[in-house]
Amino acid sequence: MNLVLFDLDNTLLAGDSDFAWAQFLIGKGVLDREVQEARNIEFLEQYKAGTLDIFEFLDFQLAPLSRHPRARLDAWHAEFMDISVRPMITERARELVESHLDSDALVAVVTATNAFVTGPIVREFGIPHLVATIPAHNDGAFTGKPRGVPAFKAGKIERVDAWLESLGLHFGSFERAWFYSDSHNDLPLLKRVSNPVAVDPDDSLRAHALAQGWPIISLR
């Protein structure tokens, strides 16, 4: 059996669902444009530079979830899927996912973006498993804080290890393991698998992939 892991933002998606969700809420007037848009852009630039404080970012990202009832959030997310997400899904991305699903591999998305935002996106691809940052909740309401280790940088390895263990598996259970990513932030997990693939990579990951002889592909 093989293992196939996908990053989501700027990998399977031709864009960033984290950034797009905040921009969507700003567009609806849920978040204040003057204050929140500048912070959203700042966090995106920090991510690209590899300087992001994940907990500071999660305070920003998860706070809106704690201020609204789940039914309203779900309705907004359905609108978000139509307006923002589906236009970011390319045919190449769908075809790549389907090829791995058809091979009977164990397939998952591994993303730092929280599970509320990414769950419906992963289901749109037909991918059965999601390893993501988990937003904490209490009696069904989000608290605005993460639960456990965020699935970011080396945290992705920790969360994947825990997920595989819950299935009675580990990395050694697989003949081959792929991880597809666009970002140098994912180098820890890319180095862990037998088949790392750089997808429309940032400059830092592109340089590393070229030096290591890793495949570089585009899904755009």
Rank of each mutant, 00 (worst) to 15 (best):
131 V>Y: 01
158 E>I: 10
169 L>H: 04
153 K>S: 14
171 F>Y: 10
70 R>T: 10
20 A>S: 14
215 P>V: 12
113 T>Y: 01
92 R>T: 08
123 R>I: 15
148 G>Y: 04
203 D>E: 15
117 V>W: 00
150 P>F: 04
146 P>A: 09
66 S>V: 08
187 L>A: 07
18 D>G: 06
56 E>M: 11
2 N>A: 00
10 N>A: 12
185 N>C: 09
71 A>M: 12
202 D>Q: 03
73 L>T: 04
106 L>K: 04
29 G>Q: 13
131 V>M: 04
196 P>C: 09
39 R>C: 09
48 K>Y: 10
14 A>K: 10
78 A>V: 12
41 I>H: 12
141 A>W: 14
190 L>W: 04
15 G>V: 03
180 Y>R: 05
41 I>Y: 12
33 R>I: 13
14 A>N: 13
45 E>V: 08
76 W>E: 10
146 P>I: 00
131 V>G: 03
20 A>F: 03
90 T>Q: 01
183 S>T: 10
157 I>P: 03
164 L>W: 05
209 A>I: 08
99 S>E: 12
130 L>Q: 06
21 W>I: 01
139 D>L: 09
80 F>P: 00
154 A>C: 11
42 E>V: 06
162 A>L: 08
142 F>L: 08
151 A>Y: 02
91 E>M: 02
74 D>G: 07
163 W>N: 00
54 I>A: 02
215 P>W: 11
101 L>H: 10
208 H>V: 14
122 V>G: 07
74 D>N: 08
82 D>W: 10
87 P>F: 05
142 F>Y: 12
109 V>H: 03
145 K>M: 15
220 R>V: 12
103 S>T: 12
216 I>W: 12
75 A>T: 12
160 V>R: 00
206 R>M: 11
190 L>P: 03
150 P>Y: 01
163 W>R: 07
61 Q>H: 11
187 L>G: 02
172 G>E: 11
120 P>D: 11
202 D>P: 06
3 L>Y: 07
171 F>H: 03
97 V>M: 05
29 G>A: 14
64 P>H: 02
112 A>M: 09
162 A>C: 09
77 H>W: 14
204 S>E: 01
111 T>P: 05
152 F>Y: 08
34 E>L: 10
144 G>D: 07
119 G>S: 13
149 V>C: 11
189 L>I: 08
112 A>Q: 02
192 R>T: 07
39 R>L: 15
178 W>I: 04
193 V>W: 01
88 M>V: 04
96 L>A: 05
193 V>L: 02
110 V>N: 01
157 I>T: 00
164 L>F: 02
199 V>L: 03
89 I>A: 01
64 P>Q: 08
74 D>S: 13
194 S>Q: 14
60 F>E: 09
73 L>M: 09
25 L>M: 11
187 L>V: 09
70 R>L: 11
34 E>D: 13
61 Q>P: 02
114 N>M: 03
191 K>E: 14
